[in-house]
Design a binder for these strands. Structure first.
Length: 956
RNA sequence: GCCGUCGUGGCGGAACUGGCAUACGCGCACGACUCAAAAUCGUGUGACCUUACGGUCUUGUGGGUUCAACUCCCACCGACGGCACCA
């Protein structure tokens, strides 16, 4: 009998479809609902192996949950709006709708060939008016709540796709889709105020069963930071400059300010000056060098993010001459600059600059010769209990060649260090440093270059003196004048223990790890700022406080307020493209932005002949006069429709709700039906949507909760990602490389069940990896052997032999546990191990265990399992609605185990013993073993460790 | 630069809570069946030394803790992913 997998797979697919067995009812008596969801595909027209890797193991999980007696809903649909349809349409001259619908038809056939347990009756296609009507409706709900707003501001513009993009769609300054450099362009655009939900989006991550790295990526994307807003007065102006800072403790060190080039204050000053044609109004403070300032602003506008990155972060900027701000802490006048290293989109678009304690500020300050004032003493080392205090120095000595003087204690005794020492009572700092250099190295002619303005408070434990110290260390920087040397002055603990070496700066960079010495080098040679916490100095009455303690106090002192800032920006949803949901807004010259009345929804996408994007940033819809011109719903006057379409991520932000009630004509969904299914129990898809779809969906859910449509605040309780399958060459699959694996071909050759099984088996699900062209043969052979084993089925033999019980029950447990935890590879492996064993004892398996075997393989190979279930075991379909076999915990245990004997940590022997052997018995048997005797001959046993059920370890 | 994940045979990978590293599969070699080949079945397969019995080494590198380390600690190297002038 040959097994025609094509025929059988087709047969069962047709049978399941006819019966509609995967169409989920909203309620089934005695069963809990389980919403199982995969990320719906974009209808590109071709189901690739990546889709398979997402959907096939996901279906294994769904089928397993169904056999756990859940009422499983596993819907599918198409994310059908978007650029590729348009681009393909432009290229091939077909209408995007035609192209899309044709692809959907094709992909549906491909999807059906997978044999997944999809509920096709709930299919959602986002480009159809009965879906996007509700996009528009939801837009209007956001609009009414003030959460959808329009604004003109520099947006990310892709010159190739000729549309604006959301922040999330710009990757490394390039368009996520086509890789073109994104430029800034001023356009009126619609945004959703996702930032209102920043706090909730951050906090609620904690309660999600999501991969940690995904949660972390969202956390970073939202980017919460705590700080203060502080006003700086400007001499001669009413306006104040508000800054956001996370380090109010460093306020006394703020020696200048920087405004973003787009900061409104600059624009205002320039505007008032232009009106008066350079001449400033009497008594009014202005910008003396306004021409230069304007030029810089213009230059900034032209730059793309790529340009800015390409400049290697070299700081540029222009001072606003004759403008002075007042540092509110010490009332000092400080200069004000504009520079593009300050972003207009973050905080207040202005900063106080503290060069001594900020990397970026020190770089800028050096370039523009701005004073650097130290206000934080670093604290290094590890805290000690009641440390003894003393003053110390660290000396950095550089010679004419630029080499650094070090002493090397060797790898096991402290490694490479600079010169350090203790200040003796009454001794001067510089003198101490010179003395220490002389004593340890003999060099005596040193020229002082610099002494640090701050001291480093270093805590450490001295093993020599067995006690903790707190050393207040001053850093001293010398240049060696000449090589004249005296004798070293060393004590017994030092003699011959270290060598004096001149080394290059690179070597210092690599080899000096000791924190204090490292810091000395970084400060003088690398010129880096200290951005860590510490103790305040040069800060008036706040001296001596810790950074943490000073933050609140200084903020209060200058009348600032504490403030939480987020990195997250509002979600820009306007697209100047054709193939998307029209924005349901009418622009009336009298009434402004007016919502299209709900009764008039959907605003249908007009059939357009020319849907190419325009260079001027206007949507193609603007060219359709019939669409464009309308009446204002409020005043009845002539008005224009908004001609932008929505980002397709709007569509996918709520599709999982529509699946529950896909044909509802009155509302996006019936809340009562939603209540039965949501939140989604298990969501499976790629990790590439971490800060896009997965964030937006969470935002939509929270909004829908706030307007009372739903009662939960997170859409996806659990989330799992599949990895990416690479080509056989280990490279990303691409047509140009010719390493693309075609799943349709695999199905023709090996059958759906084999492809599914191999995808499960090939490796860790979330990891992916290269495709092994011969690897699938393993799955093919395994399924064939599995099926053949059923030739041993004897309906008269009721129960299995006792000896195979542990194997069978262990396997039931293992396969179930593994599928539940997405370890599909080891689930398949366990089945292989079981089959290998059973093939040795073909007659040992009874009727009920044959049924069990079919059930265990049913999630992976649903067609073959159903065939065995019906044709061989003579059961009624369908195996997929039978219950997963229960294992008997008592039977999973073997009654013997292999006791391993280790002698001095090495395995020397092993033998089988009863599982309940006592320690004494095990020891006795071990010592009687010939091999063991041989090793023990004439030696004393020091220790014996017995680990029940595992091993016995003898130490000689 | 910061944050995160991960490094195990020729390859994909397994290993519970520190307890026989390399399960399972691919590939390869040999054998059986065959006129022959494919398919199938059987045996072997980390490296090195050894005729053999057996021994030594091995989970990115170097150190440490332990009777025992892929697993824990420290330092480093490499790959991948996220963020990146975010004040």
């Amino acid at each position: 009998m040959t097994y025609d997998f094509h025929k059988i797979e087709k047969k069962w697919q047709a049978a399941w479809k006819k019966k509609g067995q995967y169409s989920a009812k909203d309620q089934v008596k005695g069963k809990d609902n389980f919403y199982h969801l995969v990320m719906f595909p974009y209808p590109s027209g071709n189901l690739h192996i990546g889709h398979w890797y997402n959907f096939a193991p996901a279906d294994v999980y769904a089928r397993y949950m169904r056999m756990q007696d859940k009422n499983v809903m596993s819907p599918i649909g198409f994310d059908a709006f978007g650029l590729p349809a348009e681009n393909a349409a432009i290229k091939n001259g077909i209408h995007p709708e035609k192209w899309t619908m044709k692809n959907i038809k094709m992909m549906r056939t491909q999807l059906e060939s997978m044999g997944n347990s999809y509920d096709w009756s709930r299919m959602v296609v986002t480009c159809l008016p009965d879906y996007y009507k509700w996009n528009q409706w939801l837009f209007l709900q956001l609009f009414h709540k003030g959460l959808a707003y329009r604004k003109k501001a520099p947006a990310n513009w892709c010159p190739n796709d000729k549309t604006v993009l959301a922040n999330e769609q710009v990757v490394d300054g390039k368009c996520e889709r086509c890789g073109t450099d994104v430029v800034k362009k001023d356009i009126e655009q619609w945004l959703f105020k996702i930032t209102d939900y920043a706090e909730q989006l951050l906090n609620d991550l904690d309660k999600l069963d999501w991969p940690e790295r995904t949660k972390l990526a969202q956390k970073n994307w939202i980017g919460r930071s705590e700080g203060a807003e502080i006003d700086f007065a400007v001499k001669g102006l009413k306006e104040k400059i508000k800054v956001f800072t996370t380090r109010p403790d460093t306020l006394f060190g703020a020696t200048y300010m920087v405004l973003a080039p787009e900061h409104p204050l600059v624009a205002n000053l320039l505007a008032s000056q232009m009106k008066s044609e350079k001449a400033l109004p009497a008594g009014r403070q202005g910008i003396a060098n306004w021409g230069e300032v304007e030029k810089y602003i213009a230059a900034t506008k032209k730059k793309t993010d790529i340009d800015r990155l390409a400049e290697g972060k070299e700081k540029t900027g222009v001072e606003l001459k004759s403008i002075k701000a007042i540092n509110p802490a010490n009332k000092e006048e400080i200069p004000v600059f504009i520079a593009d290293y300050v972003l207009s989109t973050y905080g207040t678009g202005a900063i106080m600059a503290v060069p001594a304690h900020d990397e970026r500020d020190i770089e800028f300050a050096r370039k523009f010769n701005i004073p650097i004032r130290y206000v934080i003493d670093p604290v290094t080392g590890s805290p000690q209990k009641n440390p003894a205090e003393k003053d110390k120095i660290v000396a950095l000595v550089e010679n004419a060649k630029g080499e650094i003087l070090t002493i090397n204690w060797g790898a096991n005794a402290g490694g490479r260090l600079l010169i350090g020492g203790t200040v003796e009572s009454g001794e001067d700092i510089v003198k101490t440093a010179k003395r220490e250099v002389l004593e340890e190295t003999g060099y005596r002619n040193l020229k002082l270059i610099d002494v640090s303005k701050e001291r480093v408070h270093h805590q450490y434990f001295s093993y020599n003196r067995n006690k903790g110290f707190l050393a207040h260390t001053t850093l001293v920087y010398f240049r060696l004048e000449n090589n004249e040397k005296d004798e070293q002055v060393l004590d017994d603990t030092e003699k011959g223990k270290f060598s004096v070496e001149w080394v290059t700066k690179d070597q210092v960079r690599k080899e000096i790890n000791e924190s204090l010495h490292r810091y000395t080098f970084d400060k003088f040679i690398e010129g880096t700022a200290y951005s860590g916490d510490g103790v305040l100095i040069n800060s008036g009455k706040f001296n001596g406080l810790t950074s943490e303690g000073a933050k609140g106090k200084i903020t209060e002192f200058v009348g600032g307020t504490t403030k939480v800032q987020y990195r997250l920006r509002d979600w820009l949803i306007s697209r100047q493209r054709y193939w998307g949901t029209p924005i349901p807004i009418i622009h009336c010259p009298k009434c402004g932005e007016i919502a299209v009345p709900e009764k008039e929804l959907p605003v249908k996408l007009p059939p357009l002949k020319d849907f190419k994007p325009a260079d001027d940033g206007r949507s193609p819809l603007a060219r359709n006069k019939k669409f464009l011109h309308t009446k204002c719903p409020k005043c009845g006057g002539a008005a224009e429709r908004d001609t932008d379409t929505m980002d397709t991520f709007v569509d996918s932000s709520w599709y999982y709700l529509r699946y529950v009630d896909p044909k509802n004509k009155k509302r996006p969904f019936d809340p009562l039906r939603v209540k039965k299914w949501l939140p989604v129990n298990m969501y499976i898809g790629g990790a590439e949507h971490t800060v896009l779809h997965l964030l937006y969906s969470r935002f939509f859910t929270k909004f829908l909760r706030d307007i009372g449509l739903i009662k939960f605040d997170e859409p996806f309780k659990a989330l799992r990602h599949q990895g990416i399958i690479l080509g056989p060459d280990g490279q990303k699959m691409s047509k140009s490389r010719g390493n693309v694996i075609d799943p349709d071909k695999l199905v023709r050759e090996f059958g759906t069940d084999a492809v599914r099984t191999y995808l499960c088996f090939m490796g860790e699900y979330s990891k992916g990896g290269p495709w092994n062209p011969t690897g699938i043969l393993g799955a093919v052979r395994f399924l064939e052997r599995f099926r053949k084993f059923f030739e041993n089925y004897n309906p008269k033999k009721k129960d299995s032999d006792k000896e195979i019980q542990p194997l069978i029950h262990k396997t039931i447990k293992k396969v179930g546990d593994d599928i539940a935890s997405f370890q599909f590879n080891t689930a398949v492996s366990a089945l292989m191990i079981m089959l290998n064993e059973l093939e040795q004892k073909p007659g040992a398996v009874g009727k009920s265990d044959f049924e069990m075997l079919a059930k265990l393989i049913a999630p992976m190979a649903p067609h073959m399992a159903e065939e065995l279930w019906v044709s061989v075991l003579k059961n009624k379909p369908s195996i997929h609605f039978s219950s997963w076999p229960k294992y008997d915990a008592a039977l999973t245990k073997e009654n013997e185990f292999e006791l391993v004997v280790q002698i001095n940590g090495k395995v020397r022997d092993s033998f089988r013993v009863p599982i309940d052997i006592t320690e004494a018995e095990a020891k006795k048997l071990t010592l009687e073993r010939e091999v063991v005797k041989r090793y023990l001959a004439g030696r004393e046993v020091k220790r014996v460790i017995y680990v029940p059920g595992r091993l016995i370890s003898i130490v000689l």
